[in-house]
Write a protein that binds this DNA or RNA. Structure first.
Length: 272
DNA sequence: CAGAGCACCTGTGGGC
DNA sequence: TGCCCACAGGTGCTCT
């Protein structure tokens, strides 16, 4: 499910609900949700702590506490919603829930159970595994071209690598490579300066617009109760194989790259 | 180092 | 309608 724009949307939704609240209780319905530690140990770390602010790093949602940090990764199907007692509704697939000092609850709903919740005293370990923020000023055309020059990997798997750029996933990589007219199998070090420039611009523009649209809902992404992202209608190639290319009308195709479904225009994005 | 394959889970949609 | 298979927005592990 969620890539950077969807995670950012969830963070913006949560922020006004959580700031200043004390975590009074935590309960895991699916014990592995706090893996590698057990839920009791996690609860011990965070109960009684105050949430100072909600933030995002890559695809991680961060709750910065008065001491330490909670990190939440939604993986494929995770959803967070703030609910009042009595409006719990459909309790299916809820893997964990927090209770706040205002007696509201934060429910973590996760059909496929890949999502994880954890605690860290400081964010060093998280930071060490994450690359540049693609919406930061440091992510410039020059930075990208310089970094690509030393990598021999195919460009799509590289862009999906969170240790390189933090936050991109399958949807936005396909969209950005299409806009930049780059074949997903092209070696990173073979990209020209002009291609790197187009790619950098495409990534930033696409992410910004998607955040503006509250992200992309394909099937399961939502935030709060029943809210949906609107970027799906703006997707140019993702899951549009068979449809005409919006640029040249050639039918879009779907291939496998790094075990992921990959959508492209065979005329606009030529290998080599 | 780069890439393939599989594991972790459940639900959905297509083909027969 | 029912069954079986492929596939899904992510990541981490092992093996070559």
């Amino acid at each position: 499910m969620p890539e950077l724009p969807e995670v950012e949307t969830v963070v913006r939704y949560l922020r006004p609900h959580l700031g200043g609240q004390v975590i009074t209780d935590f309960h895991a319905h699916w014990p592995k949700v706090t893996a590698p530690i057990v839920p009791e140990e996690f609860a011990e770390c965070i109960s009684g702590r105050t949430i100072r602010e909600v933030d995002r790093r890559g695809k991680y949602i961060l709750w910065n506490l008065d001491q330490g940090h909670i990190h939440i990764h939604l993986r494929m199907t995770g959803q967070l919603s703030v609910i009042s007692p009595g409006e719990v509704g459909d309790g299916r697939h809820i893997t964990a829930e927090f209770t706040l000092s205002n007696s509201r609850q934060v429910a973590f709903r996760d059909t496929r159970k890949f999502g994880r919740i954890g605690y860290m005293d400081d964010l060093h370990a998280l930071e060490s595994g994450l690359g540049i923020e693609p919406l930061s000023a440091e992510f410039s055309p020059e930075w990208l071209h310089r970094e690509l020059a030393s990598r021999r990997r195919q460009i799509k798997p590289l862009l999906l690598d969170q240790a390189f750029i933090a936050g991109l996933g399958n949807i936005y990589v396909d969209e950005a490579l299409f806009v930049a007219r780059i074949h997903p199998l092209k070696k990173a070090c073979d990209l020209s300066s002009a291609e790197a420039g187009r790619l950098q611009e495409a990534i930033q523009e696409i992410l910004k617009e998607s955040i503006h649209q509250d992200g992309t809902t394909i099937i399961s992404f939502g935030f709060g109760e029943g809210r949906r992202g609107r970027y799906r209608e703006l997707l140019q190639v993702f899951r549009r194989d068979g449809e005409p290319c919006p640029r040249c009308r050639t039918p879009l195709v779907k291939i496998r790259v790094a075990q992921r479904g990959t959508h492209l225009c065979p005329a606009c994005q030529v290998p080599g």
